[in-house]
Design a binder for these strands. Structure first.
Length: 184
DNA sequence: GCTCGGATCTAC
DNA sequence: TAGATCCGAGCA
């Protein structure tokens, strides 16, 4: 199984967001077991629009977004939740893809238990300690395995959720008729 | 320094 | 539809 590398993440953010659908998200736990799931929903964020944490330039929080493609960006929100992103494009360009929902493989976790950005962080036990790790390395705690691209007619493209700026941009992607997306 | 709102989720 | 809960970013 091929692990997605720098070349993949360095592509245009919208391309990465779309192509991540159907790919296999993998997390190595402390006990050596590996938890996997299929990515079924994503959102793109770039420094050129105000919903992105990189919009106002580099800060202590947003600096991760300016790192090289294939870096993990984890942030804490609403006083109790975490969200995971994968940094895209070239170093010093602030952009990433938010992973919004993951589907279980072989019923390895409850259906819809990872149907939402904070829920999947809970299931995969992702916290700020994993912020800035390089996920293109074979021994990385988090990796994403390649999988065949979906057909255009299997993908729904629409507006992003839960933001108050740039709400008109259709930068959310999810797999059509999927039972594990956060919202239709 | 201090305040405000947030890429959410669950339950009332 | 509101409340939990806290930290970063901008200064309301």
């Amino acid at each position: 199984m091929t692990i997605l590398g720098k070349r993949f993440y360095e592509q245009d953010t919208l391309t990465v967001a779309k192509k991540l659908l159907g790919k296999i998200f993998c997390k190595k736990n402390a006990d050596g077991t590996i938890l996997k799931g299929k990515i079924v929903e994503t959102e793109a964020y770039t420094q050129e629009e105000p919903a992105c944490h990189a919009y106002r330039g580099k800060t202590k929080r947003s600096e991760t977004l300016f790192m090289q493609g294939g870096t993990l960006y984890v942030y804490f929100i609403y006083g109790m939740y975490h969200c995971v992103n994968v940094v895209t494009e070239k170093e010093n360009y602030g952009s990433a893809v938010l992973i919004r929902a993951i589907e279980p493989i072989n019923n390895n976790f409850e259906k819809r238990a990872a149907a939402g950005p904070a829920k999947l962080c809970k299931i995969f036990n992702i916290t700020k300690e994993l912020n800035k790790i390089d996920i293109t390395k074979r021994n990385s705690i988090i990796r994403i395995e390649d999988n065949t691209d979906l057909k255009e007619n299997e993908i729904i493209q629409t507006v992003r959720i839960g933001i108050s700026n740039a709400t008109e941009l259709p930068w959310r992607f999810y797999i059509k008729d999927n039972q594990s997306v956060s919202k239709k």
